[in-house]
Design a binder for these strands. Sequence first.
DNA 1: CTGAAAGCGCTTACAG
DNA 2: CTGAAAGCGCTTACAG
Lengths: 343, 343
Amino acid sequence: MRKMGIKDIAALSGVSPATVSRTLRNPELVNKDTRKKVMKAVKESGYRPNRFGSSLRTRQSGNIVVVMPDITHQVNAGIIRAIESEAQKHGYSVLLGDTQGLIERERHYADMVNSGQADGILLFTPRLPFDVDPDQPLLKQLPPLVSGNETIPVEGLCRVSVNNTAGARAATEYLLSLGHRRIAAVLGASDAPSNQERLDGYHQAMDEAGLQVDPQWIVAGDYSTDSGMAAMEKLLKLRQRPTAVFCFNDDMAIGALNVLHQYGFAIPQDISVMGFDDIRYAALMRPALTTIHQPLEDIGRAAMQLLLEQLNGRQPKNNYVELPFELIVRQSTGPVPLQGESE
Amino acid sequence: MRKMGIKDIAALSGVSPATVSRTLRNPELVNKDTRKKVMKAVKESGYRPNRFGSSLRTRQSGNIVVVMPDITHQVNAGIIRAIESEAQKHGYSVLLGDTQGLIERERHYADMVNSGQADGILLFTPRLPFDVDPDQPLLKQLPPLVSGNETIPVEGLCRVSVNNTAGARAATEYLLSLGHRRIAAVLGASDAPSNQERLDGYHQAMDEAGLQVDPQWIVAGDYSTDSGMAAMEKLLKLRQRPTAVFCFNDDMAIGALNVLHQYGFAIPQDISVMGFDDIRYAALMRPALTTIHQPLEDIGRAAMQLLLEQLNGRQPKNNYVELPFELIVRQSTGPVPLQGESE
DNA sequence: CTGAAAGCGCTTACAG
DNA sequence: CTGAAAGCGCTTACAG
């Protein structure tokens, strides 16, 4: 039993291939009775239009590609899941582009749009992996594209994210409100826009509180748990230890928590720890992690919706969608310890 | 600047489209100098062959589809990442099929193979979402397919997983070796083959130790953290409490840990908790979770390799790949408490 | 409302 | 080693 083609269905239902095609794509153009005959043949034969035949004609693949550095991170996984759901709802399939942080892979996935394999691209990486002519307007040279999370700051580019600066500021202000003054910051990946934005937020809050930031309180990290551990080790060695540590994501905060336990510190009595993201396991830590919640589903859905608008030929009126974060207070943060205040 | 086609490149390099095609697909068939001319034109123009033109001719999409119930679960995410990496290495792209546990979505993704949108399918769900004629040999009716993790037990079907039974048995034996006799089991999703397999392993170990299993020790769950919490609550209400709890995955174990903390139990002094999977956060819990490690990368790679063999027209000699699990002893398990032994 | 025909961009058996 | 030609399965402007 060879695979059915549109001609087979046409023969089966006694119409032309054109009419079969119309019945499937634009039923309103077809007489009701004809339609019925065709649908019957389609049903009985289990016919599925070959995607490539149609893609070749219509020049639409029905695919989009999602590019992320690491899909095993909760944040990315949550977002792509929402994207996929929304994409499916609108008839699009999702090609997975896990770059493992490699630029050549970013380009590989970008090529899928160039080769017509995908109609649009969702970028959760901090770079534009396209060759562009610097003399031409940039936007005109790009395919339908949305930048999410690690939002690429290009004028007019469609972007979706929480306000990282405001989020980090809220986190820092919360720690300040608990009486903390010596608040350390553990940074994320240095090439990530989100990292710079969160750092800005931290500094804004500290400035406004009239506090001088000791450079030793700012410790490098890369958003990994290991880097959170290393950063915490470093902070513990300082002569004047911070009383609170704001890690720029939950994974690092979880690393910090582990180091503190290892050295026998009580959290939050001795030292407060705060994260960012609100991954699923944040609430399950001991103590449960205070953090800034990111609405992953909303981010994914909004990104897909922005892309859909472009795919439908509309330039979205609002090209930057900022989604609300939320301060989630749990048990890893508490009032500044007494000696911390006075010291 | 319209998109370049193969004819454009042919014109640019002064050869026929056929030769351009050969240069790109079977360079060894083409004279070296001709090849050079063509490659030069390809480079300069940035030409990418249109995937649909070629797919239509060759009847190969170059895509595979991966079907999983929930990509936000660490286990699935780790596996799909390895799949993607291996797929890319061999020129395949990965279509993401997150089913959210819905059968209609499983069928939707299965349809991608039927419509030629994907050449093969990797199934991490416990069902075959294909219509088959029960009078015909099953395998002949299926596309290139590999079943992973929730391995569908069909004779001859390509499958990849750890030996869940042996893993659960090793876990239970380990708890027995610590002196535990009242060992509870918190079950996973009831429709998951892995759940039944792990339950078998648990029973095997208990039987061989000559222990009667109190039915109350077997508590339903669904692999979610919440279900782990509910199960633990239930177990704590038993007149004769178990001294060890073997949760059939880490998420449930983490839930159990939280409930125990909440009620003030010391782990493992009062009660031991064990998981299965060894997700990234297992090691980061307090106490760190003793568990059975699954080699996610190996599973993903092996699954893809089995699929590749089929895609290349070979029926793999070995249609079941069993990967080694590993008992990871951490701090959530310890010797049976004294009163537990005597009671 | 329906059909015949052209053509999307590629590949490959065939001929030379 | 290379080219001309046919055709993969579909869609759609055109004609009726």
